[in-house]
Design a binder for these strands. Structure first.
Length: 907
RNA sequence: GCGGGCGUGGCGGAAUUGGUAGACGCGCUAGACUUAGGAUCUAGUGUCACACGACGUGGGGGUUCGAGUCCCUUCGCCCGCACCA
């Protein structure tokens, strides 16, 4: 790599100009302007109602020890361009940065080395800040926050207390203060404990025994969401997760399911992210139906989305975890069922799903009565029915449900078709009618009549059938329409040291209370034992002087020793940026009212569900309590694509580290084996040795080059591979800009040429529109076109040069400032207004028509722009060049679209 | 299986409501300058024929004066979710 700051520009006589030597010394001027911005706090913002506001937020990073990678600056540069542009357009911009700094790595490091996580975290934050500042991003650094700072997590705890003291009023679909909860008289009569239990059952945050995932590797519980499909733990990648029963803090997010779904409609988010959230919440509508159980005075309740298929229910299934299993099982089946249930309990969920191909189950020996056919149907236990969803029991309709069909075929249970798939292929229809295939789509009901009970849906369509059966069930008190959601309570505690302590005390008499607001924050105690225990007890449980408390009456208590998960701090950080130094309240209401909602939120798609859903949930609770003024936090969401890198693999697919690859004549050769390798695109990884470090890029090509390249690579939302030659491309562009515009010999006084004015105003328009559309790659290409034009024009006026500096400023702010100051300006270009686009410079009195014959462009014809259609037609076909295409043919039609195209149809 | 997205030169990628396919950049080729340098400038560069021209946006079909763009069909890739009754 050559040294960039030093003069490869040896010739002082390079055409077309002669000028005194100037080095493209970016490393000097980039530092200079960064210092200027910082010292003068040019990007500081205050709530100012006289101006329109723009709140632009980046997903704040976890400051890992590895430092920034090239993925970070991608989103940050995009938002920075928009913010600089918006400021120039007169907006009051809020653009903050901070650190999501709780988390496992710092704690693991503490366990290994004894270094307190706060020290490691501080160091990493310093590195991240330095790296981010070296990119010239226009953050308001006075608003920097850190989730591990007690002054910050004091308010995280404060919000937790609000959650704890809120219940959800289903009637009003709204969270309300717990002291507005009306205790039913029958509960009141049962005494104090019953009342307390009732209240606990309503709080949005509650403490209870829960079957939870426990990662033996991390020695902590983890949320359902953190356990991936293949049974591995998202955080550590090991498969050492298992089910345990532990006392845990849970949040009742399902109460907000409906609002979390409906709120999506008015948000300007990628459709895919909205769908993922809807999918995650998993709303389904159906009905609960009660089935009489033979020989027991009980009714087994099931949930089904297809009550219309009741006539086809030939058996029932309950989950192995269902509490009725022992009671339902007949004596002769007892040992068999017990064995099955025990087996299912031992199986982890991953085993269950991995073996999903084959259905397993066991008959309980008991029958239920199908309420519409009056027939006996067997009750089975099978693990394909989950306890956590619906009622944990189903009616099985093998003819019209794939899973039930598979199960019925495996265990030879009758399949009764009750819906004729009229529009299916004849072959398939025959099979369905005979019970040899499954049909889940629409059709017309058959065998679905019971005159004694007054129910007949024969001939109806699915939609009418469902409604008719639900009505019928309701009238007879056999069932009712029900809505179900997949989303479960959010497991909100971890057995770790490095997290927010819960502001909760467990008293010796069994009472649980929240710490009062005046006593916040509950800080983390100093300790040197960070290691969690095998049993799942937090390290905080060992710090007795912190742990044990006594109230004014001498009652003893213990602090909650769990800590909050990493999600907690990121659930509300966008609110703290609004008023980050306030120690009276989490933020001032007036400021919140001015800045919220976030107008643009940019970050990775990996947070499509969890972070964004959790955060929306907290926000809605705060909204219900009147703490925030908007129902949704993030108005517009944008996901930047991932930056990948080239990697190499052998014919057999094994990966080869990039330092062992040579390129020769477009082929990739293994330097040790000589084997020809295939170039692939992969995630950057240490093992592939294809990680690009932003510090290196900045050192070699400058921050402007890094910024510009990341924006020029392609559309912001698509994944794209990094190439070093691509960086050089934009570096060359910046150099060309510098050599032309920093050379005052090229900058003249006087009137600008028509052509240059046109090019300039095209550029203003294109760049403005493209920033609005977040199409930064084409904005940059337009600036390249303009620069190419200037090289051809050889001279431009100072006005033109200054205007171009303003347009360039959001993208390459350092270079733009440098040029701006060369022109003698004393204040920064970052404080200048955005240039006005003037359409009159673009007006042309001629237009170069492409002339097509039968849709093929053959030649071009320059005509007056205002020439009438008829005359254009005439001129086109009488043109000498046209004769060749008309000769011997008949003109059928001529299409003229003014200032677009001429198409001659010939035969 | 369900949901979302995508297929355009050697490569990254451009193309308002259907209206000149391949902008811009990389790479490559040639030339200029030269104390030969991986610098800079200029020109060229979709493919085949390299003259006329023909063919070209994953494949096939359709609508249209005109299709990368609209419709049908088919193939391939990426990302989520996945026994949720």
């Amino acid at each position: 790599m050559h040294h960039p700051t030093f003069s490869y520009f040896c010739g002082s006589n390079v055409k077309p100009f002669i000028f005194t030597r100037m080095d493209f010394n970016f490393s000097v001027y980039e530092k200079k302007w960064q210092q200027y911005w910082l010292d003068n706090k040019v990007f500081a913002s205050e709530a100012d109602t006289s101006k329109p506001k723009f709140y632009c937020l980046d997903m704040f990073p976890y400051p890992s020890g590895a430092g920034l990678h090239v993925g970070h600056p991608e989103g940050y540069t995009a938002t920075d361009i928009i913010c600089r542009y918006k400021r120039a357009k007169g907006f009051n911009v809020l653009h903050p940065m901070g650190w999501d700094a709780f988390g496992l790595p710092a704690e693991q490091y503490a366990i290994q080395t004894g270094t307190h996580p706060a020290i490691t975290t501080q160091k990493n934050c310093d590195t991240f800040r330095r790296q981010i500042q070296s990119l010239g991003l226009s953050y308001d650094w006075d608003r920097e926050i850190n989730t591990t700072d007690p002054a910050y997590f004091k308010w995280t705890q404060w919000i937790f207390i609000r959650l704890y003291n809120t219940w959800f009023d289903k009637e009003q679909q709204k969270g309300r203060p717990i002291d507005e909860l009306v205790i039913p008289s029958e509960i009141e009569e049962q005494g104090k404990d019953a009342v307390r239990g009732y209240i606990e059952s309503k709080r949005l945050a509650y403490y209870d025994n829960a079957q939870v995932w426990f990662c033996k590797h991390c020695k902590t519980v983890c949320a359902n969401e953190e356990v991936l499909n293949d049974g591995s733990h998202e955080k550590c990648g090991t498969k050492e997760v298992e089910r345990r029963f532990l006392k845990q803090w849970m949040l009742r997010i399902p109460h907000y399911a409906e609002r979390l779904i409906s709120g999506l409609d008015k948000l300007d988010w990628p459709e895919g992210v909205k769908d993922m959230q809807r999918n995650w919440i998993g709303k389904s509508t159906g009905a609960e139906v009660d089935f009489e159980v033979e020989g027991l005075d009980k009714k087994l309740r099931v949930y089904t989305t297809r009550p219309d298929t009741l006539f086809g229910a030939t058996y029932m299934v309950i989950s192995p975890e269902h509490s009725w299993v022992p009671e339902l099982t007949t004596n002769d089946k007892k040992s068999e069922v017990e064995a099955y249930v025990k087996d299912a309990a031992l199986k982890s969920d991953m085993d269950r799903t991995e073996l999903a191909k084959e259905k397993t189950g066991v008959f309980t020996g008991r029958h239920a009565i199908n309420p519409v056919t009056g027939k006996q149907i067997p009750i089975w236990v099978a693990d394909y029915v989950l306890m956590g969803y619906g009622t944990g029991a189903i009616m099985a309709v093998p003819a019209h449900d794939h899973r039930d069909f598979e199960f019925a075929k495996t265990f030879d249970i009758p399949v009764v078709c009750i819906l004729d798939p009229k529009n299916a292929e004849p072959e398939l229809r025959k099979k369905v009618l005979a019970g040899n295939a499954c049909w889940t789509d629409d059709g017309a009901y058959i065998n679905s009549e019971n005159p004694e009970l007054g129910l007949n849906i024969n001939g109806m369509s699915k939609k009418d059938g469902i409604q008719t059966v639900i009505n019928w069930l309701g009238e007879r008190n056999l069932g009712k329409a029900t809505v179900n959601y997949k989303i479960r309570d959010w497991l909100f505690s971890r057995q770790r040291y490095w997290g927010e302590p819960f502001p909760i005390i467990h008293w010796e008499d069994g009472e649980v209370t929240a710490v009062t607001d005046e006593n916040l924050p509950v800080e983390l105690p100093k300790t040197d034992k960070y290691q969690p225990s095998e049993s799942g007890e937090s390290p905080l449980a060992n710090v007795s002087e912190w742990l044990e408390v006594v109230d004014e009456n001498g009652r003893k208590g213990r602090r909650e020793t769990n800590t909050m998960p990493q999600w907690a701090g990121s659930c509300w950080y966008y609110l703290r940026y609004i008023d980050p130094k306030n120690d009276e309240e989490p933020f001032s209401k007036a400021k919140e009212n001015y800045w919220m909602p976030v107008d643009l939120y940019v970050g990775g798609a990996e947070h499509a569900v969890l972070h964004l859903l959790y955060s929306r949930f907290w926000h809605k609770v705060l909204f219900d309590l009147g703490i925030v003024s908007t129902d949704e936090p993030y108005q517009r969401l944008y996901n930047q694509g991932m930056i990948l890198a080239f990697a190499y693999e052998t014919a057999s697919g094994s990966k080869v580290p990039s330092d062992l690859v040579d390129e020769r004549d477009g082929k990739y050769i293994h330097t040790e084996t000589g084997e020809e390798l295939r170039q692939i695109v992969a995630k950057m990884s240490k093992s592939l040795k294809n990680v690009v470090n932003p510090d290196d890029v900045t050192a070699n090509y400058g921050a402007d080059s890094l910024r510009l390249y990341e924006m020029f690579m392609g559309p912001l939302d698509s994944t794209k591979p990094w190439t070093d030659t691509g960086v050089k491309g934009v570096y060359n562009f910046l150099k060309r800009v510098f050599y032309f515009f920093a050379d005052t010999n090229n900058i003249v006084e006087g009137d600008e040429s028509k052509e240059t004015l046109k090019a300039l105003h095209q550029t203003i328009k294109k760049v403005s529109d493209d920033i609005d559309d977040m199409k930064f790659n084409t904005a940059i290409s337009q600036m390249m076109i303009f620069t190419n034009h200037c090289y051809k024009a050889k001279k431009v006026t100072r006005d033109t040069a200054e205007t171009f500096a303003k347009v360039l400023a959001p993208f390459a702010p350092h270079l733009a400032e440098e040029l701006w100051s060369i022109y003698g300006n004393k204040k920064g270009v970052c404080l200048e207004a955005w240039p006005q686009f003037d359409a009159s410079y673009l007006v042309e009195d001629t237009f170069e028509y492409p002339v097509s014959f039968n849709g093929k462009m053959r030649f071009k014809l320059t005509l007056p722009a205002d020439m009438p259609k008829e005359e254009v037609e005439k001129t086109a076909i009488t043109n000498e060049l046209a004769s060749k295409w008309i000769e011997g043919k008949q003109i059928v039609k001529i299409i003229v679209v003014p200032k677009k195209i001429i198409n001659v149809v010939v035969k």
